[in-house]
Design a binder for these strands. Structure first.
Lengths: 166, 166
DNA sequence: TTAAACTTTCAAAAAAAATTGAAAATATTT
DNA sequence: AAATATTTTCAATTTTTTTTGAAAGTTTAA
């Protein structure tokens, strides 16, 4: 397999993984393209390579910057903006986990806390409350665990976790 | 807040969480409905409560059974099928993790392994190979970690993890 | 074996999400 | 300050996903 072919396949793989996790397919493809690119790319280069429109390219680049995994790079003598992906995959992983925890997990935890205030005068909400409690247990534990992953160094964390398995 | 109102809100919350994780909104709502229901529900009851068609209800119930988090329950003297959700949330969590790891993480790991076979005669694929290696590191470690979560008991795991934090 | 009760399938329709492309806005150079 | 280059926005369009509902299939009971 030639390098360019492998890069293309990687872009496809990354794109389809993302879409099954509720992330825009094109955004993941732009990310993959920047990951495999040895040099910073301009919006035009991204448009050409992925055959997407300017609007689409712009939107997704912006979103990737919002996730903190792509940054702008300016070239001297060039008016265009160029983009680079953070190549430290552990860092990318942490960044995504951090964002999704904030955007999705935390609101759900807050919402379940809210639902625990349900009227239970006659005890009819007992089962419901028990369900909310167990949901809260699992979600807050997941949240704590993700926090641990995000805050710690990869090697330290992994050596500790591997010890748990034995 | 009245119990029924709280149940409705929970169904909405669960539905929107799911859709941001690439899971069909209606499927999550059916799941939530079964979670908060004190008794097994028939397809008709699910249709009526969520205002969805028979085909949709059937499809999503079937899918939930495929995920192993909802099961059929037969009532004596009744010809209809009734459905119940597993109320053990830790179990539900493990089941979902197990399935998604199998369905999505493993194929990606296999695909990256494949891409490592790229032609590197003249050394031009060096950066690409380094990227694949680091991806493989993170994904296989995530996979191992999820395996640990799935195979171990909730309390044991959590007490160990909490120790790591200190 | 027939009929009624119930479940499944799937083509068509509807809804939701993503994409386009051109106009507007912004930034840079002359 | 005008011209040019570049980026951003967003209404309209396209694509993808979800949902419907009626027909076909299956199971149970009489």
């Amino acid at each position: 397999m030639k390098l360019n072919e492998a890069k293309e396949k990687f872009i496809q793989t990354w794109g389809s993984l993302a879409s099954s996790w509720g992330i825009n397919r094109t955004m993941a493809m732009v990310h993959a393209l920047l990951l495999v690119s040895e040099t910073p790319l301009s919006t035009d280069e991204i448009m050409e390579t992925l055959l997407i429109s300017r609007g689409n390219a712009n939107m997704n680049i912006r979103e990737l910057m919002g996730w903190g995994i792509v940054r702008k790079e300016l070239k001297m003598g060039e008016r265009k903006e160029f983009f680079v992906a953070d190549k430290d995959i552990w860092n990318v992983f942490k960044q995504i986990v951090k964002e999704r925890r904030k955007r999705e997990l935390e609101p759900v935890i807050a919402s379940i806390e809210e639902l625990k205030k349900v009227d239970n005068g006659n005890g009819e909400a007992g089962e419901f409350l028990a369900l909310m409690d167990s949901l809260l247990h699992v979600t807050t534990k997941a949240s704590v665990l993700l926090d641990l992953a995000v805050k710690s160094d990869e090697n330290w964390l992994m050596s500790k976790l591997l010890k748990l398995i034995k």
